[in-house]
Design a protein around this nucleic acid. Structure first.
Lengths: 197, 197
DNA sequence: TGCTTAGCAATACAAGTGTATCAAAAAAAA
DNA sequence: TTTTTTTTGATACACTTGTATTGCTAAGCA
């Protein structure tokens, strides 16, 4: 047998190189050569792990989504429901550098996927799974009677989802103008308007 | 003197070709050659009107922003304030094909501008001018005492702005999943929660 | 009628693109 | 040590990219 190499680890290493290039130069800067160089390996090595550029991109996109997903799923469910929601949203919205990085990558991929048939299904899948997270939040709130009376939980889930993604976009394209505190404040205010005191 | 040609008209013609390519293939598909072909002219002609590709892109980006801006500014100010706000938001959010096209182009440009120093200031300018629109809306509402008591109009302007841009993004990346009626419904609901009955 | 010049078309060029191929290197198994 | 097979690196190929250059065309003024 040849050199022992953790295949999956190498693939993630390459995906992370893709992320760095996206943040620095945008998705236009992601070529197989630039990724190989960024990851410190040769073109041939890269092609050994990914048959094509689009396979590399799809893997990179899926990986960032899975990291966020896992972080959300590993959150403790107990305790105050409102606090749980706030920490959950805190995993999505660009409140710190890591979250900002993920937001930038998500936005780049989402835009790219609009005209890339190979990536569209994956983009939709990510969007839908986040939508389900919001749905579940409001279902639970509704059942626990924590929502203010008369609210349509399905509609509120969509409204909250749009607000959060809007904050993500604003955090990315106007990070110098909107602060983490403001983002957190807007979410606070929104929850105030939805939940029973 | 040579052939009489409306310079500005030609430039807009080229910008519109850029838009069509963005919608069809994304910004990656926008090369000087593809734009020239889409506009039905030669490479040399295009370069006669734009010294460089980035000048072409900047012009195209600015033009779409100005079209939206003009549409908003030409709205009649009289009548019911709430109705005015709804028609104003209706100029931004992808409720029909034309608005969807503009949203796609806006998203592509905004993402591209993140890593393009030439375009970043323009992107920020567009963002800021929309932020000012929202600010003004809530200032006016506040002065007319149409807002529910106890609301921070500055914060509410930011929240509304984020919600609207979130709806734009959702309308673009999940147009098959979210309908125009749903988008309109979410805005209705949001205004209900803000305005005095 | 000739002249000037904006507008246009064609070609060239260096650089970068994704992909394919193929041989060398390295390490476990014989 | 020899064999085997994954991993790696180099090179090549066809193509596209942005830009530059060059000369032709056509229209209005003198």
């Amino acid at each position: 047998m040849p050199k022992i190499v953790n295949h999956e680890e190498r693939r993630e290493h390459l995906a992370e190189a893709v992320w760095r290039i996206i943040r620095r130069e945008g998705l236009e800067g992601v070529s197989v050569r630039s990724v190989a160089e960024e990851a410190g390996m040769s073109l041939g090595s890269l092609r050994h792990y990914f048959d094509s550029q689009s396979a590399l991109l799809a893997f990179s996109m899926r990986l960032v989504a899975e990291r966020i997903k896992k972080r959300i799923q590993s959150l403790p469910q107990d305790g105050d429901p409102r606090e749980h929601i706030e920490t959950l949203i805190g995993q999505i919205v660009p409140l710190d550098e890591e979250r900002l990085a993920e937001s930038q990558i998500w936005m780049a991929f989402s835009t790219f996927a609009l005209t890339e048939p190979d990536l569209r299904p994956l983009s939709r899948e990510i969007h839908d799974s986040l939508r389900d997270v919001f749905r579940k939040i409001f279902e639970t709130l509704d059942q626990s009677q924590l929502l203010k009376p008369g609210l349509d939980s399905e509609l509120e889930a969509k409204r909250f989802h749009a607000l959060v993604d809007g904050l993500v976009v604003h955090g990315v394209i106007a990070s110098e103008v909107i602060s983490a505190e403001e983002i957190a404040g807007i979410i606070e205010r929104h929850l105030d308007s939805l939940l029973e005191p």
